[in-house]
Design a binder for these strands. Sequence first.
DNA 1: AACTGTCATTGTAACGGTTCAATAACCCGG
DNA 2: CCGGGTTATTGAACCGTTACAATGACAGTT
Lengths: 332, 332
Amino acid sequence: MARIEDVARQAGVSVGTVSNVLNRPDVVAPATRERVTAAIASLGYVLHEPARALKAGRSRTVGLIVPDIANPFFADVARGAERVADRHDVIVTLYNSAESADRELRHFGRLEEQRAQGVLVTPVGGAVKMLEAVRRRGTPVVLIDRGSKQAAVCSVAVDNQAGGRLAAAHLLALGHRRLAFAGGPLALGQVADRLAGARREADAAGATLEVLETSRLDVAAGRTVGAALAARSSAKRPTAVFCGNDLVALGVLQAVTRDGLRLPDDLAVVGYDDIAYAAAAAVPLTSIRQPRQRLGQVAADLLFDEIDRGADHSHQQIVFDPELIVRQSTTG
Amino acid sequence: MARIEDVARQAGVSVGTVSNVLNRPDVVAPATRERVTAAIASLGYVLHEPARALKAGRSRTVGLIVPDIANPFFADVARGAERVADRHDVIVTLYNSAESADRELRHFGRLEEQRAQGVLVTPVGGAVKMLEAVRRRGTPVVLIDRGSKQAAVCSVAVDNQAGGRLAAAHLLALGHRRLAFAGGPLALGQVADRLAGARREADAAGATLEVLETSRLDVAAGRTVGAALAARSSAKRPTAVFCGNDLVALGVLQAVTRDGLRLPDDLAVVGYDDIAYAAAAAVPLTSIRQPRQRLGQVAADLLFDEIDRGADHSHQQIVFDPELIVRQSTTG
DNA sequence: AACTGTCATTGTAACGGTTCAATAACCCGG
DNA sequence: CCGGGTTATTGAACCGTTACAATGACAGTT
């Protein structure tokens, strides 16, 4: 494969000039520049990024580690981050931790080895100590959607307690008094916060709120919960269920409709995230919308601020407000 | 940040020995090895992958370029590919072309610059000429799911004509005689093939098959089609619609049920891909299942064969058989 | 004609690893 | 206690690029 030296020979210039054409085209005379460009094209020269990265001490990538690549929520987050990275001439490489601390650790390791400029991550529960080590070694990290309360690191999140309150308040306003929350694990901060918000509203209104904890936030978990609910007599069944995310809600929806219940009359359902499939469900889902792309975009902005400004950068914890999107799964 | 030389000094050995500990631990004496390992840990040394890649002439990555990262189909493909890559001590970096030839081109460029060992790609329509250039410069490429007929490149795909035949035969066996196909653009080979397979069965049975072309394969496109169908009088409406993929089918499903039609009595619907959401739809979707993880896994196997064996490698076009999954959207 | 100042180009020393031939250390049999 | 054979370690060249100091060419000024 052609090296920069081959290009130089072909164009009759030195390697330094070729490098200048590549990196600071303005300093080289137009005629020379053109000759070099032609040589590059004719040889099919492709820049050797590892060599450049070695010289520069940093590569042109940032990492994005998400816990579930099949969740469209994170596809939107990625899109937002990419747009910002593009402006900085940096590429976003996407990794899937699949909620496994071990995989997350491996991905962090790879990114450090590649000398990624920074990492955007939605950390799996409990992996915070290794994250600290990464930052100490010099790689900036911004947390997405699972913000920590500590001021020592940037994070962007949506106010999950507020989301829980919105959901519960909506159900209470519709007259429901026996509520349930489906989702988990509760060890996940954002799940716990959504529940806490709902709990607060329910308590204030004197309503009951039963917790149906799941081990994951996916469709299968929702189906399990839904089947259990459908099996109860209507007297023992909550009249409304608020789910930890839309995947769980879709699972509940499927299981209970298959078992003959009707939404929202027999059971009202509220999801969380407002993914595209929420509106597309056969009974369109009331959900809590989060500014997904914006989350990724602002996270990337913070990351680049830390990368560019270094010590001058001050960490910020940005919290967005969620929004209630009302559809037929609660209002019929 | 600590370099290999720092580790060597701290452990009282030469840099060569440290490198040996890292790459061929068996050739270094246990006592020395342990001293070096301790030094690595105490300094928090992290390998500099760009330097290694420069020396080695290749990096430890392969690329995976998919046309829609939010489509769970590709999440499964990625999982299959990752498992294989893990075995080769290589990481898969995921890029989203979003069906844009321009983005695909950029991603290819980045991967070549990084000296990725190879690329797995579901190419967007028509981008085949640049793909040829990449291969000529020495980067092996395997096509996923949009196989070319040419024998000059490896590909894995599922027999889309067979899938179309399965779907249509199923509907015909249920007695339907006015069929429709919803999906597009028809310029996409796989969409055209699915339609062609369905067409063949319909013709053989003397049934009609109306084509409702869409510009994309997503939920929104499906909703548009569904709304149009629901607006027709039942006499002018097909009794069954076969959709280009599950996202389109879900869109159709949502639109027609909202407008009061019932599945499958008023309209039978068949999807394609059998994504998780297909079973989770309120009227669970009959669909054509493709071996998604296996697709990614076999593609990666072919890629590594080409990487490892070089000229000894012979290109293969592997075609899997799709499978009909029957659910309530056709059988009630 | 000598000098100054621009502007374009060049040569080369890093960057942080790996690899391999060369060397050192050691063991054991005679 | 020496020589031959292992085994463990070392040192230096090289990978492809960038950046910077140095050089060269040339026009304008006195």
